[in-house]
């Protein structure tokens, strides 16, 4: 057995409530590993339907799912993988107005989004609701990850000091979100069980083109308009 991963850790996993926001390239592998590991309650939030262009990386969705709501396609497979857990598909667009309701009762948020603007909304809500947020993003053969625990380290606005972000499409090689989504699930499990050292104050960089991992130290911005007044939650 892996050190620390005994019955007590598994019970923590079983009683955990995790939201995966976006069940695309990142959210597919993340939610597969979370479901397989026995996360008791998994809320999937996404308003898109499955498109042919998704299938190079969004491994929860297959050619037989084209046109189906992603959360429905994802929930079906995750429930078949692990019928012992509760999977809650929410087919809604995330907005400033509904984000607090969508994250109600959630212990950890896992990032499966595809744009920076929605991530800013999630970041601000997580800081305000004091929910740990595992950030992941990809471009081409590269991926980035950090774990945001309100009050303990920087939030997304400390890293990207701007409220607005351009809406752009990002080309992605399928395995990059596979790597980062799996790492996001690892971070969520560590936060839930208390095992290991989460990537707080560290931006992990996966460079698939050169096949190397780097990390850079990231600091809380003491003047951050989103998180500068938060106290630690743990």
């Amino acid at each position: 057995m892996v050190k620390g991963w005994g019955e007590a850790a598994q019970l923590k996993v079983k009683s955990a409530r995790v939201a995966v926001i976006g069940v695309g390239g990142l959210g597919s592998p993340a939610s597969l590993y979370l479901a397989a590991s026995g996360i008791g309650y998994l809320r999937l939030i996404d308003c898109d339907t499955v498109d042919l262009s998704n299938l190079n990386r969004q491994i929860l969705h297959w050619s037989t799912d084209l046109g189906r709501p992603k959360v429905e396609s994802a929930a079906m497979k995750l429930t078949q993988l692990n019928p012992e857990i509760a999977v809650d598909p929410v087919n809604e667009a995330l907005t400033v107005d509904n984000v607090a309701e969508l994250l109600k009762g959630i212990d950890v948020v896992v990032d499966g989004l595809d744009n920076l603007q929605s991530r800013f909304i999630v970041n601000e809500a997580c800081v305000s609701l004091r929910i740990p947020y595992v950030y992941g993003a990809v471009y081409g053969m590269e991926g980035f990850l950090t774990t945001i625990v309100p009050g303990e380290g920087p939030c997304l606005r400390c890293i990207y000091p701007s409220a607005s972000a351009p809406a752009e499409a990002f080309p992605v090689v399928g395995t990059a979100p596979g790597v980062i989504g799996s790492l996001e699930a690892s971070e969520a499990l560590k936060l839930i069980t208390g095992i290991g050292k989460p990537a707080i104050e560290r931006l992990i960089i996966y460079d698939g083109e050169l096949m190397r991992f780097d990390e850079i130290a990231i600091k809380k911005d003491e003047g951050c308009p989103v998180c500068s007044r938060q106290k630690p939650i743990r």
Binding site: L113, D114, L116, G136, A137, V138, A165, E168, F170, P177
Partner: peptide, 10 residues
């Protein structure tokens, strides 16, 4: 010296 534009794909 490392240059990072914003990355937001998923």
């Amino acid at each position: 010296v490392s240059f990072f534009p914003p990355v937001a794909g998923g």
